[in-house]
């Protein structure tokens, strides 16, 4: 009897397997066509850093180096300098002349944004950081201050979820908000950094 039942069992099991794969054949595939379609990241995803400005265009960073101190990977380098009336870059007393992050060392832990007393640095959602050259992995201040590219060299860089919606980009410490709003109203048109006020 055993060979006979074995044949039946084998046939049945094989049929079940074949039906399963056939269902997969007609089922919806789960492949993401990467360069065209990007996997949406969660809002609090920790990607490429951003340096932020106040609404009046002044940089939030005051060059205190607390981020560099907090960084476990030691990938942040800050060189601070005094603001002068001729050259006012940040809202504070000092500003960062050099602000570099070595992206090939960064572990995206987010300690820097936690350490920052002015919310000057946050981790954005941009995760396409691959490059062909180590030198290009060092992100300078101008790169970090700029918006992440809306289109990159690999194709269309569609950022599915951004932080901009929840106001973090323009958020000021509550105690500063009123002052800055008043100042930016006075200064409109004569923005010291030459930038139009960023919303």
């Amino acid at each position: 009897m055993r060979p006979i039942t074995g044949v039946f069992r084998g046939t049945k099991n094989t049929s079940v397997g074949m039906a399963t794969t056939l269902r997969a054949f007609f089922g919806k595939n789960i492949t993401e066509q990467y360069p065209e379609v990007k996997h949406p990241v969660m809002p609090r995803f920790r990607g490429r850093h951003k340096l932020h400005r106040h609404a009046n265009g002044l940089e939030k960073c005051v060059g205190c180096s607390l981020c560099a101190a907090a960084c476990p990977a030691d990938c942040i380098r800050v060189v601070a300098d005094e603001n002068t009336d001729d050259n006012r870059v940040s809202a504070g007393e000092r500003y960062a002349t050099v602000y570099e992050i070595n992206m090939s060392r960064c572990i995206f832990c987010g300690y820097c944004e936690m350490a920052c007393p002015f919310d000057a640095i946050t981790l954005g959602n941009d995760w396409e950081l691959a490059d062909l050259n180590r030198d290009q992995m060092i992100y300078t201040k101008s790169m970090l201050l700029a918006d992440p590219p809306t289109s990159d060299r690999y194709g269309m860089n569609r950022r599915a979820v951004t932080l901009d919606g929840d106001g973090l980009d323009s958020a000021l410490p509550v105690w500063l908000e009123e002052t800055v709003a008043r100042e930016s109203g006075e200064r409109s048109g004569t923005d010291p950094t030459g930038r139009k006020g960023k919303s």
């Binding site: 794969t21 056939l22 997969a24 054949f25 089922g27 919806k28 595939n29 789960i30 492949t31 066509q33």
Partner: peptide, 9 residues
């Protein structure tokens, strides 16, 4: 075809 059988493209 193999890909289609495995939910791939």
């Amino acid at each position: 075809l193999l890909s289609f059988f495995q939910y791939r493209l």
